[in-house]
Design a protein around this nucleic acid. Structure first.
Lengths: 191, 191
DNA sequence: GATCGTTTATTGACTAGTCAATCAACAAAA
DNA sequence: TTTTGTTGATTGACTAGTCAATAAACGATC
């Protein structure tokens, strides 16, 4: 019983199912059939809307980045003053939504994909530049010219702490945030 | 014409070929046939010596970690004094051998594997503990009780910087080392 | 030092299963 | 009737792992 206007609904379902399935299996070795089944349709329909398995991955990752970006913007809007803005960006990177198993899985596999697929690499670069830019703007009023340098270091530390936390036996976002904020404090007091 | 004593030679060839093939494809979606072909034997022989594809991956990763461990030990032996030892550990983590494409690929896929395979997770934990331990021992005489904390932060920063460098358009080990060493300097001067 | 059973090395062929992508065909809306 | 939604069936290619069979080296025994 075909209904009209299904495209956006189907696409959203498929993206959600793709992320869930990647989280379940832990890798990109998921089948289009399983994704489609989870989304309540045939695999042929998944191909109809996305064209290929890889396109589904990319759309899924773009969705993860969109959600993350919205969280960052929300946290920035609620922050009062430059230092609070920097801390908001850091904390948003370790939000509970970023620590769901399937999102962790998506990130790790995204790194793998970024080695060989230019589209993934570009997307990753965009995310990193935005992160550094957000941090730099917050840091500039606090430490002036050192802002760019420190922002890069914080970005590196966020990714490292995320990786460590994600792969530790007991993932602990709070500890990870603490580690990055300790560095921030150190950098701010070293004027 | 079978010759005796082939087992260690075959195993070494297969490990080398596995790493090379992973580096080529960029993921674990490599076939046993291709690995075996690259190593100059039939796929049946690869199964004979390793039993499964996953066992080949694990052996390959263990080899990467062994080489890395040897580099660290070498750098530590040549280092003079605590601070030099800390810097030696940092620099060894960004050695040229760790920046070969296939080794980067092995690391990224190892992270992915560590999500779901206990053996991979355990191996990763061993590597991380050793890294932190090495750093802590070097830091203790310099900053006493803060050593453990700072060692963890450096370890996190090493992984983050490695990730960034590995996935940037122009991988640059020197810049990555510099970033971690900057943090070290900051931490040492913040007594 | 010839004989023979055992171990090790090695492969081609095969099993049994997987999967991405395609396509013809059908159903409802416009 | 053209567009949009939808699927079952199929294709064509690929894969991990098994197995029987072969052949060289080893070692013990006579």
């Amino acid at each position: 019983m075909p209904k009209i206007g299904m495209e956006p609904i189907r696409r959203a379902s498929l993206i959600k199912a793709t992320i869930a399935e990647i989280g379940n299996v832990g890798s990109l070795e998921v089948t289009v059939s399983r994704i489609a089944k989870r989304a309540g349709m045939s695999s042929a329909l998944a191909h109809h809307y996305f064209g290929s398995k890889e396109a589904m991955f990319m759309a899924a990752m773009r969705h993860v980045l969109t959600v993350y970006g919205a969280e960052v913007r929300g946290a920035l809007a609620a922050a009062d003053g430059p230092e609070a803005r920097v801390r908001a960006v850091i904390r948003a990177s370790f939000s509970t939504s970023n620590f769901r198993r399937e999102v962790i899985s998506a990130w790790l596999n995204f790194y793998v994909l970024a080695q060989t697929r230019d589209e993934a690499r570009r997307l990753l670069a965009v995310y990193q530049r935005r992160l550094v830019s957000n941090l730099t703007h917050g840091l500039r009023p606090l430490i002036g010219a050192r802002a760019a340098q420190v922002a890069c270091s914080i970005a590196v530390m966020i990714d490292g702490a995320y990786l460590h936390a994600a792969l530790s036996e007991t993932p602990n976002a709070t500890r990870a945030v603490g580690r990055v904020e300790d560095y921030l404090t150190l950098a701010l007091n070293a004027g």
